[in-house]
């Protein structure tokens, strides 16, 4: 295994040199992600965190963070661990999960509300991939349309994209992470790339081309395989809530007006449930008032008109 890796990395470094010759400046992509959660996460949140940590070889999992209000302390924590990204799971009320994606020293912070969480374990998909292989990140076209989505995309690229040459990363690419925008939410999926025999196409020209290409690129696998995707998991849906300019602080530069807090949703539900009772009570009160006005209620005779125009007073 080591030999394979060595040979491959050698070829990779050769490629790097080539690009250098081309006159491009090699910028080092150095990312480290601090992955941690607040206290009060459910097992499902914890499992999702573990799944994500397994996929991010450049991640550093830390123990639960104690505070929910002093999030700026995370900056120091990240600095302590030499991380420039933070992925923080904030659980509220033992059911709602908010995910914070932050660039630590001075980058923006995005807060998401995570819904429809499904961990790898419970999804029972047949896909699998190497631990720490670099994913291809697939972004929806919509990510280029809005500034806030562009920021979100960039943050995803930093946090979910495994940097080239990360310490524990594997040299092959065998999974895709998909980020799609639909219904104002971001849907995250993870698929295995499975290379299958290509179904023979009708035109022979293509085949011949393939064959010639195959002859050329013998080292890098067969050209005539097609790709199919098998889902691995986890699945989750993120609703952006706010984007802050600083790391866990600073002015808010984006706020999602379509986001409705789950507390509010629940309150509405409860209110709707209570509505029937309220309506009934109101009706009862009205009836009572009407009856009193008519002097039908015991004890309370009809009030006399204070202006002196009451019939009883006029014709007494």
């Amino acid at each position: 295994m080591a030999a394979v890796y060595k040979s491959l990395s050698k070829s990779a470094s050769k490629a790097d040199k080539e690009t250098d010759i081309n006159g491009t400046v090699q910028r080092k992509n150095k990312q480290r992600v601090l992955i941690l959660s607040s206290r009060g996460v459910t097992y499902r949140h914890r499992h999702l965190l573990n799944d994500l940590a397994a996929m991010l070889p450049h991640g550093r999992k830390d123990v639960k963070f104690d505070s929910k209000s002093k999030l700026y302390q995370l900056n120091e924590l990240a600095e302590l661990y030499n991380c420039n990204n933070v992925l923080f799971f904030e659980a509220r009320k033992g059911k709602d999960l908010y995910m914070w994606f932050s660039k630590v020293p001075n980058g923006p912070t995005v807060k998401f509300h995570a819904q429809n969480l499904h961990t790898m374990e419970e999804l029972h998909f047949t896909g699998n991939c190497l631990k720490g292989s670099r994913p291809i990140l697939s972004f929806d076209g919509a990510f280029e349309s809005e500034p806030h989505l562009r920021v979100i995309k960039e943050i995803f690229l930093h946090i979910f994209g495994v940097p080239q040459g990360a310490r524990k990363s594997k040299p092959f690419i065998d999974h895709v992470m998909g980020f799609s925008v639909a219904d104002g939410k971001i849907w995250v999926r993870n698929y295995e790339i499975r290379e299958v025999e290509k179904v023979k196409s009708a035109d022979d020209n293509n085949n011949e081309d393939d064959k010639s290409k195959k002859g050329k690129s013998k080292g890098s696998g067969d050209k005539d395989t097609d790709i199919s995707l098998v889902e691995i998991g986890p699945r989750f849906v993120l609703t952006p809530i706010i984007i802050q300019e600083g790391a866990f602080g600073g002015p808010i530069i984006y706020e999602n007006k379509r986001f409705i807090s789950p507390n509010q949703v629940r309150a509405e539900l409860r209110k709707a449930k209570a509505g029937r009772h309220v309506a009934r009570m109101e009706q009862q009160r009205d009836t009572l008032a009407r009856r009193r006005n008519l002097g039908l209620e015991s004890g309370g005779a009809k009030k006399r008109d204070p202006t002196g125009l009451d019939t009883r007073e006029l014709f007494a």
Partner: peptide, 8 residues
């Protein structure tokens, strides 16, 4: 290979 991200 530097970033491996594709925008559809």
């Amino acid at each position: 290979a530097f970033h491996q991200s594709v925008v559809s």
